[in-house]
Every structure is written in C-alpha cells, then in structure tokens.
C-alpha cells in the first residue's frame, strides 16, 4: 500500500537563518496514527506546515502520490486537514456554522451545500448544539471539536493535530480520544502528551534539531529519549 504522506530529505531554513528542518524522511500510511514527539523548537510545527504547502522547503513532500507544489495546493489542502494548536486562530468566522462552512465554500460548493456539510460535520464531532453560537462563547473543548469539524468537513485523507490536548481538562481529553478513535483517517499527532499518544498512536517519531532521531512504538521512544515527566530515573 502506498503511503498517504511521503517526505524525503526535507530541509527548511527560516529567513533569519535558523535551520529548522535538516533532512527529514517520513511516511504515513493510510489509516495509521503516528505520534510526533520532540523538544520545543525541534522543528515539529515547521514540519507540519510543509505537509500542505504552507511552507516550502527543499526536498520532496508527496500527499496521496501528488507532489506538493503551487499547482496542487488546492487539492493537497483538501486532503490534509490541520487542526492548529490555538483554536481561536482557527475559528476566525463570526459564527460556528460559517466557520465550519468556510472550507467547503472555498472548494467551490454552493452556500447551501456547504452549510449542509457543515451541519453534518458538527453532528459527527458532537457539537451540533453550538451551530449558531459565536466562537468566543464556546468552551475550550467545544472550540477544539468545532475546529476539528472545520477540517473534517473537507473529507481529508489525513488529519494533523498540533497539540490537541492543550487547554482541555481530563474529561475533555478523554472525549477527544474517543472521537479520534472513531475517525477512519490517517492521523499525525504532534504532542507532548505521552498518555494521549499512547491511547491512539501505533507508531512514534522523535524529532531532534530538525531531523528524525528515532522511530518505534510510543513506549520505545519514551524509554529511549527519557521522554516523560517522571523524576525517578
């Protein structure tokens, strides 16, 4: 089976000279769930931004067999849905319905069709009750769900979630795990939350100074890189 995401030798240098990515090789298979670990500043978020062409580095990124270039942006962005860390940045439209319908409208759907699909996506994430609310009035958990709906509504093949558990309380995190388990898409979880990764991911990748430093199961990676809060070593 061909991977839904295939990255080879990806390098990226920020305009200020920081080498954020330094030869990353990575693949994600259909339906797979992979956790991406690494210290702050190890290049995780920069990497994620390459997956749908928001950043453009050297090397190759392929999504469902398509190389990510200017010509394929529209298609790639429909295939790879990114849920960003800050829900307030993701939910920028005045009401929940308009926000979730934003993607489908950009895909060229009629307003009516887009609204229908938005309602269905909100139903799927269990946020149908928030449909006419303003994003500002939502709780953190609701915001996360609505942000997810805004991405799911595009019918992507890959879900990328950047720190999805921040600002969620434990029951909220539990609900998110349940919700994500029920979704058929391939998932990439960028997270510091080992518990959360353990509950979902079958494989983990460790980033260090812009490179993949290790790969294995979540437990192997946690062991090998001492990636836990525990003080007793």
């Amino acid at each position: 089976m061909s991977p839904v995401i295939q990255v080879r030798g990806l390098r990226y240098r920020y305009p200020d000279g920081t080498q954020a990515l330094d030869g990353v090789d990575f693949h994600l298979d259909a339906g797979e769930c992979v956790a991406l670990f690494g210290a702050n500043g190890s290049g995780k978020t920069t990497f994620v931004l390459h997956l749908n062409g928001l950043l453009d580095g050297e090397g190759s990124v392929e999504v469902c067999g398509m190389p990510v270039t200017k010509d394929t942006f529209v298609k790639v962005r429909a295939k790879v849905g990114i849920v960003f860390q800050d829900s307030d940045e993701q939910l920028f439209m005045p009401t929940v319905l308009e926000d979730v319908a934003f993607g489908p409208v950009n895909l060229g759907l009629s307003p009516q069709k887009a609204a229908e699909r938005a309602c269905a996506a909100l139903e799927k994430v269990g946020a149908a009750g928030a449909i006419h609310k303003a994003p500002y009035h939502l709780s953190s958990g609701e915001k996360r769900r609505v942000a997810l709906a805004g991405v799911l509504v595009m019918n992507p093949d890959v879900l990328v979630l950047d720190e999805p558990t921040t600002s969620l309380d434990p029951p909220g995190q539990r609900d998110l795990v349940k919700l994500l388990r029920g979704l058929p898409q391939a998932k990439l979880l960028v997270t510091h939350d080992v518990e959360f990764a353990r509950a979902l991911a079958t494989r983990a990748v460790f980033f260090e100074r812009g490179r993949v430093a290790g790969e294995g199961t979540v437990n192997e990676i946690v062991q090998r890189f001492s990636w836990s809060r525990a003080l007793d070593e």
Partner: peptide
C-alpha cells in the same frame, strides 16, 4: 495571531475571496 489566522485560512483552502453563506 494575525499570521496564525492567515495560516489557518490558507490551510482550509482560502483562495482570496470570502463568500457570504446565506444571502
């Protein structure tokens, strides 16, 4: 934050035009 918002807009296929939902 504004940069982040713009990034999120692009990630969801924003092509330079906002279209209102229901006239």
């Amino acid at each position: 934050r504004a940069d982040g918002i713009y990034r999120a807009m692009l990630a969801r296929g924003f092509s330079g035009r906002f279209s209102p939902l229901a006239p």
